[in-house]
Design a binder for these strands. Structure first.
Lengths: 137, 137
DNA sequence: TGGATCGATTGCGAAGCGCAAGTGAAAAGT
DNA sequence: ACTTTTCACTTGCGCTTCGCAATCGATCCA
C-alpha cells in the first residue's frame, strides 16, 4: 500500500487532495462546532449528505488522520467518531471560511448561533482555544 | 436566470458551493500569492489543471464575484484576470490552509518561498496586509 | 499571406455524485 | 424465543463531472 502521489509540493494542494470537495469540511464542521460524533448525526445535517458519500468521507478523513473511529463500548451497533489533534488543527481555516461566508450574505440572514459568531469576530483565537478545551480538556 | 439554491443557511456550505473542489482555491492561490493574471499562467502551475476545467473554474469564480475578467487592451487574444475585494477576502482562509498543510509535512520539504512562510508564521495579519497593498495599492 | 499564440471548446472513457433500496449485526420490545 | 427496530453502512443505477488529447476561431507576427 503506497500513499497516493501529490500533485505538487504546495501545502494548499496537499490540503485540497485530502478534503477539497463539497462535503469533507462540513463533516469537520459538525465535529468541531456541533460536537457530533455519530454517523446518523452527520447524516442528519441540513445539507443532506448521501449515506454512501458520508461513509466514503469518514473513511478518507480517518485515513488522512483527521479523525478517529471507534466502536461505541455501550452499544455494538454504534460507532463513535472524534477529532484528532491534526483534524482540530483545521479549525482556524474553518473559522476563516465561516467568517468569509458570513460576510457574503446580508446581515440578518439565518446562520450559526449568534454567540459563536460574536465570539469568532471579536476574539477568534480565544474562541478556538475554547473549542480546543471542549475537545481535549 | 435564477441563482442556484443553497444547500443550507450555513456560511461554510455556501463557501463550499462556490469553491469546494480540488481546483478553485489553487486558482485563487495563483492570483493572491503568485500574482498570476492570465489563462496560460494558471494552466502552467505545477498541478497541471486541464484547460477545460480551468476555463470552467474561471467562469464560476467570476460569476461568484471572486475575480474579474477583462480583455488585455494591448493584445486582443489575451485576457486579464484579477482579484475582486471579495476574492481577496479569502486570503486569511487560504493562509490558514497553507499553514495547516505546512504543518502536516516534515520540515525541509520543498514548498512556498521561505520568506512568505516566515512572514505568515510570525505576523499573519501583517503579511496579509502586504498582499492587499500589492493588489489594491 | 502563412504560421504561431492564446483562450478557450469538443469528444471520449473513467471516476464520482445523488438518490433509493437493501444488508447484516446488534439491541429493544413482547 | 422471536420479531421488530435501529444503526452503520453497501449496492445499483443514471447522471454529472473529471482528466486527457485534439481542435477551434480570433488575433498577432514575419
Amino acid at each position: 500500500m503506497t500513499s497516493p502521489q501529490r500533485r505538487s509540493n504546495c501545502p494548499l494542494a496537499f490540503a485540497l487532495d485530502l478534503f477539497g470537495d463539497r462535503w469533507s469540511l462540513l463533516v469537520l464542521r459538525d465535529l468541531v462546532f456541533a460536537g457530533k460524533r455519530r454517523f446518523s448525526e452527520f447524516a442528519a445535517s441540513p445539507e443532506g449528505i448521501a449515506t454512501n458519500v458520508l461513509s466514503d468521507r469518514l473513511r478518507r478523513l480517518e485515513e488522512a488522520g483527521l479523525l478517529r473511529r471507534e466502536p461505541d463500548p455501550e452499544d455494538g451497533r454504534k460507532v463513535l467518531y472524534s477529532l484528532t489533534e491534526t483534524g482540530f488543527g483545521l479549525t482556524p481555516a474553518l473559522c476563516e471560511l465561516v467568517l468569509w461566508g458570513l460576510d457574503q450574505q446580508p446581515p440578518g440572514t439565518p446562520g450559526p448561533p449568534a454567540q459563536l459568531v460574536e465570539a469568532l469576530r471579536k476574539d477568534r483565537d480565544g474562541a478556538i482555544a475554547a473549542l480546543r478545551r471542549k475537545h481535549f480538556g
